[in-house]
Design a protein around this nucleic acid. Structure first.
Lengths: 225, 225, 225, 225
DNA sequence: TATGAATGAGTATTCATTCAT
DNA sequence: GATGAATGAATACTCATTCAT
């Protein structure tokens, strides 16, 4: 897949349904799932889209023809994997937020707890997330829904912090919460090499940084400036 | 270039000299420079290493044989481009820090000025930096020197902030300065899609975020916690 | 094909089946045969493996991809040609021996008749045999089955002579028959430049030599020493 | 060197002088010798002409330009190596024959002694001889002088046997001696894989075969037929 | 629907030979 | 004479996509 972009219409949703050719039901739905699962497995093993449809065919016990019956191109199959992953992430993020809320009773607790839990979640999903992000750099069909997912994740994080908006300093609480979220995500993402220099910091530093990140956000949210 | 890693000895330096075949002087140095420049141009145009040696040959008016006279492989030519870029970045960072220092007279000025200037620098260098980072993910020959560059950049940034350590709160000033740098870089990098989801925020949000980033760091550095 | 050996497992059989990728039946078998035939034709024309897959593609009306569908490498295609040839040789040798036996009624007749017929057979097969032998020098996958073929040919030749063992002198008849075969083959092979200096003797000398070769073997087999 | 033949004029001599560009004397003769020696070394190491002029340049401390100053092509350099070898062979063969003659006092001794000594000589020279013979198959410039060398070797061998022509049976002694030589050489050559199937016989069989070869020749030379 | 055999454009790399210095 | 940097033609192999069955 050397061809880079090939953007298409201004589609905004990236779900398996929107990249796969026809809404599947019943028996053939199983084969659809097998091919997507096989592709995902290969992407995780390879750490990239460097897999062959031949391999998907064998791994998923699906004929190559079948793949093209469901997907217009290999590219779309990759998009389907990413779409699936995005959906799963969203689900997990919602659950995680609930856990965070349950464990917190103040701004001073919610921030570090959120950082910790979000970090763990991102770490687990990093392998595919990395690939989503890499592709989003040149593929609008991934970038657009990726942005939406990011927005929802932001909304969830902000919501958790805003639960204690009474403790916030300053006036524009939403703006502060949003900034805090952006910075938290960016910092975590970089540590997980989600598109970063790969200088995956020493675990030592990483642990330390998470603490400071929490402190920084807390200081920022509370300050009147 | 499907072969991923091929790490080698424990070389730590990535300079054109270490990936190119022989120390070049005089006349033939010109042709070396032309091929590296052509490769860089193509990498910038394509946004990736998806260029052909044939193209480098034409663009740089160098024979393919000549390229192999200087570089063991296309991979090494790419590394040379990155090495060049790393060197240039370092130079520019040092100059930028000087400017920042000159414009500042307090923690409250140095932080936002630094954020602003560093952001601008990174924005300009983003296209190649993105590729460096992508390659570093699987190529130790790029990752190692990349890490070193990152460390030097961190040292410079911390130094600028520590100039006003008298205004810091808390006790471990180095730790704080380091955390602040990491968070600043991560946030800027993400906005520039340096490996990120590509949801390059609206210019509006971006401007806003830089301001909040400065505020957050300032609040953090000053707080006693 | 600069890579010399690449031996593999301890496979002992070299048949098209063992170097080609999948047991072919029906329709696609035809294309397999076309590509092998094209390769053979080119090897005969060139007198060596210096042919291009591009040429095989055109000559055999097969796409390059198809070749790789059947053969892992050009090397394996060459091996398939050789395997085919080996099989054909074996067949012809068996038939030839039957003819020799039918025409003979004494040691004095069987030896020269065998020499004459074997010479003719080898002459006809020399072009490919030469290449088999050249490759066997560094390719175990050809050397091993080549050895086996040679052994079977020896067994057939000895058998023809031993039919008249009553006329043998000395005691160890098998040993004598074996020595006679080896010397006959070696002499014929050299005359056919099967790996020899190419000083393909004058037809005159060649004819003469065959007669003397027969005489020598006869004298040897009959002698009591 | 994929181009096969390119025969040229009807030159008949292959000496370094006839393939090298100018009769060398003095200082530059040394460099000529270095490049030929380097080429020979590489041919022995590789077992083939698969060496690079670059390698000859380094190994022999000669510039590539120098090689082309002496030789019209890489092919001619190879021919020079072979020519050298041929000359050396001839020298050694003459010496060997003297030794054989000195050790013999009857046909019954000269034949096995000659077989043994010639076998040893050929074994030692096999590596380059093999390459001479391989090249002779398509290169007249090597085939012609090779043939001459072979003729001289035949003459020497025949001479040794004819020393005892009084013990020969039959009438045409020259013819018999010639046939014996041809068969001896062919058999030895094949055992040494001089272009042969590579089924280098077990040392056991080899020893045995040499004995039988001697017996066979003896029986043949003595018989009246 | 489903299959998987067939297609063929596209590309990194090698190395004999030339020629400016 | 001597050098060795520059040249560029030549070639095996991959893999997304198609389409006959």
């Amino acid at each position: 897949m050397s061809t880079r972009a090939k953007p298409r219409s201004a589609e905004k949703k990236l779900a398996v349904d929107s990249v796969s050719r026809k809404p599947q039901q019943g028996r053939s739905k199983a084969s659809l799932e097998r091919m997507v699962a096989a592709a995902e497995k290969l992407m995780l093993e390879r750490g990239s889209e460097d897999f062959t449809l031949q391999e998907v065919s064998q791994e998923g016990s699906v004929s190559i023809g079948s793949i093209y019956l469901r997907f217009e191109s290999k590219e779309n199959l990759v998009r389907a994997v990413i779409a699936n992953h995005l959906k799963r992430m969203l689900q997990r993020e919602a659950e995680m937020i609930e856990r965070v809320k349950a464990q917190s009773h103040s701004l001073a607790t919610v921030v570090p707890v959120y950082v910790e839990n979000y970090a763990e979640l991102l770490r687990e999903e990093a392998p595919l997330l990395r690939q989503s992000m890499a592709r989003a750099a040149f593929d609008p069909l991934v970038a657009d829904p990726g942005r939406q997912s990011a927005n929802r994740a932001a909304a969830l994080g902000m919501e958790a912090m805003l639960e204690y908006r009474a403790e916030f300093g300053g006036s524009d609480h939403e703006r502060k919460a949003n900034a805090a979220y952006q910075i938290i995500f960016a910092t975590l993402a970089r540590q997980l090499s989600l598109g970063s220099t790969g200088e995956s910091v020493h675990p030592q530093d990483w642990k330390e940084l998470k603490i400071e990140l929490g402190r920084m956000c807390l200081a920022y949210l509370k300050t009147d400036i």
